[in-house]
Design a protein around this nucleic acid. Structure first.
Length: 567
RNA sequence: UUGGACGUCGGCAAGCGGUAAGCCACCGGGUUUUGAUCCCGGCAUUCGCAGGUUCGAUCCCUGCCGUCCAAGCCA
């Protein structure tokens, strides 16, 4: 007996979404002694993006909660645009997210024989026919949303003739485009999808799994419900644009003898602010080198987020917290950033990196002397321990941590002002050195030896604490600051006549030649850090090495000073 | 224009006839060796609009308005 209460534990106090409500209802009304089965059916013609993650989390999440099964199935019914590279990347991404880790993988192409048999069954019962009109003719004959279509002159061919023609299609005796197999439904139907939809088309392309076995390939509408039925799917969850296809989904299942009749449920796909989610556009960005590859950290692809430093848990949490509904919506990218910040705040070790170095000479620090100072790795987690950071007479601080004419509200370094160097000493700025053009090139400061570690024995306070690195011991590193890929919040609201590429953000990637504390050079690729006062960064999986450290900014820290400045 | 779907705070989103959850964002204030984190407080007398049913409506009914989807041999 299906345990309806399973779900209650998993979803705590928050009301369950409408899909889980439907499933609960189905289970209760007893259609439901079966086990809940869902599926995630990507077409292997592109990389997965965060929108797919929403669907993956939904489908696999439901299976987990109801102690059911979710199948990863490739909907590979169109050989002309599908490739093995994509199936590999999709499997990798799904597993990286934490799903389907030891499950079998399914392919629609494994069902081609059964699909073909059902097509024959429909022909035999007079519910399908071979149409010999051209694509152009079929289009005009289909009518419009307001005008009914017209029956094809080939609509009433005999069963025998249809069988014979369909067989020729299969054997490759007919050319692409000369004819198709159509379902015989209703050319005047108000739902255009029901006006004798195509079931099979001739495609003499080699399929990435079936090779040259077939010359005909099934269409989505014909195939999908059958794929679901073969696998015993109970709830076939898809996105809103398939709502108009549901009557057709049901029609195919009702007109041959199938093992079961899954229920199709539609939900709204994810849209994220400041980015695009269409596979076509993402592919174009890759092909035309607007980004380095599918896993460019600016891409909303799962591999892009992974390389950017997002964790599987953060993406899963995001998908769960945005909820499921039928409302077309645009989720604020800010929300995703909030979630990854929150996770990394407790998990990432702290380190110091100076992105735009400004040299500081501590004039009263003995020449030739240096020392190691203890620094905590994570104030949010004492178990993370401490590390030693080298300090010396010359250090680098951030250029924007110094201001010559500083306003009252500026808590950082300025002539005559005292600040704390994190984990080190209080220093006071005595002298500003400039080049011929008047640019500040160096600062002369003095330190208070009594403040070692960062505390003053006399109890005096400083307003600001700066991060820094030892000029002598610091290591050069490439730091890549990523920002939003596009400048428009809602990419569905582009101005007339503009292309999405017109909105590419020219500052989506800024590379800094930075100075980082030595411990960072030794770290392994893929490790995340918080660079104090800057943000969260991950050692790049592709390019980082001890000889050439490379860090990608996952997300910046919140910055109330920057916000104040804008006012 | 026809059919379908959807309209609850700036963004997500609960609510399922008994008098508007939560999260993000935002705005204050406190703590802080990260202007981070953390903590406290504020943030829809109103649910697209207009009528109706009801003791009572965001929830039911009618009409209107708005948005999205649909005329691939794509999925």
């Amino acid at each position: 007996m299906a345990d309806v209460n399973n779900n209650a534990e998993n979803e705590s106090k928050k009301g369950v979404d409408f899909i889980r409500q439907i499933i609960n209802e189905d289970l209760k009304t007893g259609k439901g002694t079966q086990q809940v089965q869902t599926r995630f059916p990507p077409e292997p013609n592109g990389y997965l993006h965060i929108g797919h993650a929403k669907s993956i989390c939904l489908n696999f999440g439901i299976a987990e909660e109801y102690k059911g099964v979710c199948k990863l199935r490739f909907d590979d019914t169109n050989p002309s645009r599908e490739e093995q590279e994509y199936v590999d990347s999709i499997v990798e991404d799904v597993r990286w997210l934490g799903f389907n880790t030891d499950e079998k993988i399914y392919f629609a192409s494994d069902y081609f024989d059964q699909l073909y048999a059902w097509a024959l069954e429909l022909i035999q019962s007079g519910k399908a026919y071979v149409d010999s009109q051209s694509a152009e003719e079929i289009r005009t004959m289909r009518g419009t949303p307001t005008k009914p279509g017209t029956d094809s002159p080939y609509r009433n061919r005999s069963v025998e003739e249809n069988l014979e023609l369909f067989d020729k299609m299969r054997k490759g005796e007919l050319d692409e485009g000369t004819c198709i197999l159509r379902a015989k439904i209703d050319m005047a139907h108000l739902n255009m999808n029901m006006r004798d939809p195509a079931m099979y088309r001739i495609r003499k392309a080699s399929h990435h799994r079936t090779g040259d076995k077939w010359n005909i390939y099934p269409m989505y509408d014909f195939a999908h419900g059958y794929e679901d039925a073969i696998e015993g799917i109970t709830h076939s969850i898809c996105t809103l644009e398939f709502e108009n296809h549901r009557p057709l989904y049901n029609w195919f299942l009702e007109n041959v003898a199938v093992p079961c009749h899954p229920r199709q449920i539609e939900f709204a796909r994810l849209n994220l602010s400041y980015t695009v989610m269409s596979k076509r556009k993402l592919l174009e960005l890759v092909k035309e080198n607007y980004v380095s590859d599918w896993d460019d950290p600016r891409m909303p692809s799962i591999s892009g987020f992974r390389r950017r430093g997002y964790t599987p848990a953060s993406i899963r949490r995001f998908c769960s917290e945005i909820g499921i509904s039928k409302v077309n919506s645009l989720v604020d990218i800010n929300f995703l950033q909030f979630i990854i910040r929150e996770e990394l705040n407790s998990s990432a070790e702290r380190a110091m990196a100076v992105l735009d170095p400004l040299k500081v000479v501590i004039t009263n620090y003995p020449e030739g002397q240096s020392e190691e100072l203890e620094a905590e790795n994570n104030p949010a987690n004492p178990d993370a321990g401490t590390r030693m950071v080298p300090f010396g007479r010359e250090i680098y601080i951030e250029q924007n941590d110094f201001m010559e004419d500083a306003p009252k509200k500026f808590f950082r370094l300025a002539p005559g002002r005292e600040v704390r160097l994190k984990h080190a000493y209080f220093i006071t700025c005595d002298e500003v050195i400039k080049d011929a053009d008047g640019n500040v090139t160096e600062l002369h400061c003095s330190y208070d030896p009594a403040t070692r570690g960062g505390d003053s024995p006399d109890g005096r306070k400083v307003k600001g604490t700066l991060h820094w690195v030892s000029a002598e011991k610091a290591v050069k590193a490439e730091v890549r600051l990523y920002d939003k890929l596009f400048s428009l919040e809602n990419m569905d609201e582009m101005e007339e006549g503009k292309d999405y590429k017109d909105y590419l953000n020219p500052e989506s990637l800024i590379v800094k030649e930075s100075m980082v504390e030595p411990s960072l050079a030794a770290c392994e690729a893929g490790k995340s850090f918080q660079f104090l006062r800057q943000g969260y960064f991950i050692a790049d999986v592709r390019d980082h090495s001890a000889q050439h450290p490379v860090f990608n900014r996952t997300v910046a820290l919140k910055d109330s000073w920057a916000k104040l400045q804008k006012k």
